[in-house]
Amino acid sequence: MKSTNRQSPAINAGSMADIAFLLLVFFLVTTTVAKDEGLNRILPPKSEDSGPIPQRNVLEILVNKHNQLLVEGHFTEIENLRATALEFILNKENEPNLPQKKIVTIDELGTIAISKQVISIQNDALTEYGTYVAIQDALSGAYLDARNQLAQEHFSKSYTKLIEEKELDKVKAIREAIPQRISEAEPNF
């Protein structure tokens, strides 16, 4: 006699679990937990009067309310600021309009001439914060480039590499030779 209740064919679901795991692994690998990152700075103390600094030692950056940059009196695009600042920090050719040099002796580096550079930022009350951060970022980049170059000359290794390899004495020497000096004018608004 023929059976009336037809057996539905079994679907092989054995691979379902594999697919699910594959998906899980995929998302595990691709998701990144948002981490707090940013630009670290140390604000200057309230009463800081360093006295007059010679004009040539200061890279003056003025920002107006339309977020335009005036660097040493020239209109500059923010993309070019990093290169301009790098040239200023190093003053390789000892140009008379770029920072003075000072001969010092630093452990690990010996006797070298370092530049007496200071970078000054002055912004308008209505300058956008985004522009300010972009300037700070460009200047950080310029200092990093300058430090990388100095490290390459003395230790045949970039500054970033020195940090990675935890050669703290050398890192400290480089930082001492090229200190990050970004000053911000007291607000006049």
Partner: peptide, 12 residues
């Protein structure tokens, strides 16, 4: 600065 909280991070 008035409160000597000098260390700052600009989150980006």
């Amino acid at each position: 600065r008035d409160f000597q909280l000098f260390k700052i991070q600009y989150a980006v």
